[in-house]
């Protein structure tokens, strides 16, 4: 009887095991993306919570300008999309998805700011490989990871978590998703949260 139970439990485990593929699939990235191993899902503890005032910052963008979060207060909602690193699998197939949602971001009076701890030339080359992105891409390279640290999402390896912060026009954090670094956060959920601000 015990043997049957063990077989049954093993069968459960096999049935329950879903596909865990989380890498990039794009043929065009085949030879240019560094394949990472599965990493510790979250490697930081953010003190920030929903309802907090978002810490202000100014960072250089690949467009050559300085971009300040504070400049959007009173005008636009802001989504901060922190991704860990350029030229890595999941990151390379997160922002291109936002590229085809430009109209929806605009309709919802929201700007998107992409941020990594890479330097500007790296970010420039990487986003060019994607075919370009419509939103500002900011470098939190120096002082290294200072903004990521302020948001409590700097990992021990020096890269940021994969995280989304939705900040309303008053500068208040209304939604945050500090996500498993190995997986892409739900775009559908983000857009639902954005739509709530319009209600």
């Amino acid at each position: 009887m015990m043997k049957m139970l063990i077989v049954l439990i093993c069968a459960f485990a096999i049935i329950a095991a879903d596909s865990t593929f989380a890498g990039n699939t794009s043929e065009g990235f085949k030879d240019s993306i560094f394949q990472t191993q599965n990493l510790k899902p979250i490697d930081s503890q953010s003190p920030i919570k929903i309802g907090d005032k978002a810490p202000d910052f100014t960072l250089p963008s690949i467009g050559g300008t300085q971009v300040s979060l504070g400049s959007y207060i009173g005008r636009k909602n802001v989504v901060l999309s922190f991704v860990p690193a350029a030229w890595t699998p999941v990151c390379s197939e997160q922002w291109p998805g936002y590229n085809i949602l430009k109209d929806e971001f605009e309709r919802l009076e929201t700007v998107l700011l992409g941020i990594t701890t890479d330097n500007i030339p790296t970010l420039f080359a990487w986003t060019e490989q994607m075919g370009g992105v419509w939103f500002p891409v900011l470098s939190d390279f120096w002082p290294h990871g200072a903004v990521s640290r302020e948001y409590g999402i700097l990992r021990s390896s020096g890269v940021s978590e994969r995280a989304l912060f939705l900040i309303d026009k008053r500068g208040i954090i209304r939604y945050m998703d500090i996500h498993d670094i190995n997986e892409r956060p739900s775009t559908e959920q983000l857009m639902k949260e954005l739509a709530k601000l319009k209600e």
Binding site: T25, S26, Q94
Partner: peptide, 8 residues
């Protein structure tokens, strides 16, 4: 994939 720039 929606996220694949080459598919786009």
């Amino acid at each position: 994939s929606m996220y694949c720039p080459h598919c786009q």
